[in-house]
Amino acid sequence: MQATPSLAGLTVATGAALAAFCFALSGTQGPAYALAPAAGFAAVGAVVSFSRQLLKV
Score class of each variant (00 low, 15 high):
23 F>K: 03
26 S>P: 08
57 V>Y: 03
33 Y>E: 10
56 K>R: 05
53 Q>S: 06
24 A>F: 15
51 S>T: 08
49 S>H: 07
12 V>M: 01
34 A>G: 14
42 A>Y: 14
12 V>N: 07
32 A>M: 15
27 G>I: 12
40 G>I: 10
10 L>V: 06
15 G>D: 06
30 G>P: 05
37 P>M: 06
20 A>V: 03
47 V>D: 11
25 L>N: 12
25 L>G: 10
22 C>D: 13
5 P>K: 00
52 R>Y: 12
47 V>T: 05
43 A>M: 12
26 S>C: 05
13 A>V: 03
4 T>L: 11
29 Q>V: 07
19 A>T: 14
48 V>D: 09
2 Q>G: 13
39 A>V: 08
10 L>I: 06
49 S>W: 02
18 L>E: 02
15 G>Q: 09
53 Q>I: 01
54 L>F: 09
9 G>E: 02
2 Q>T: 11
41 F>M: 12
41 F>L: 14
33 Y>W: 13
10 L>S: 05
56 K>N: 10
44 V>P: 02
13 A>H: 01
45 G>P: 01
14 T>D: 09
39 A>T: 05
45 G>E: 12
8 A>Q: 11
6 S>N: 05
49 S>I: 04
13 A>T: 05
16 A>T: 03
1 M>A: 07
18 L>H: 02
42 A>S: 06
48 V>R: 12
36 A>R: 13
4 T>P: 04
34 A>P: 13
49 S>F: 02
23 F>S: 05
9 G>V: 04
21 F>I: 03
19 A>V: 14
49 S>R: 08
29 Q>G: 00
19 A>F: 01
16 A>V: 10
53 Q>V: 05
46 A>I: 08
29 Q>K: 12
51 S>G: 07
34 A>K: 04
56 K>Y: 03
54 L>T: 02
42 A>D: 09
21 F>V: 03
32 A>G: 12
48 V>S: 10
35 L>R: 10
55 L>F: 04
7 L>S: 06
4 T>H: 14
57 V>W: 01
20 A>R: 00
24 A>L: 15
21 F>A: 15
17 A>Y: 15
29 Q>F: 13
31 P>I: 03
29 Q>P: 00
13 A>G: 14
8 A>H: 09
14 T>C: 00
34 A>I: 06
13 A>M: 07
19 A>Y: 00
13 A>P: 14
14 T>S: 01
16 A>Y: 00
52 R>C: 07
11 T>I: 04
55 L>V: 07
42 A>V: 07
10 L>C: 04
34 A>D: 13
24 A>P: 14
50 F>T: 13
4 T>Y: 05
28 T>A: 15
57 V>T: 09
52 R>V: 02
50 F>R: 14
9 G>R: 01
33 Y>M: 07
49 S>E: 08
23 F>V: 00
35 L>K: 03
19 A>G: 15
22 C>M: 13
35 L>C: 03
38 A>S: 08
32 A>T: 13
46 A>V: 10
27 G>A: 12
51 S>E: 08
51 S>M: 11
16 A>W: 00
35 L>W: 05
2 Q>P: 14
8 A>F: 07
42 A>K: 04
27 G>L: 15
48 V>Q: 10
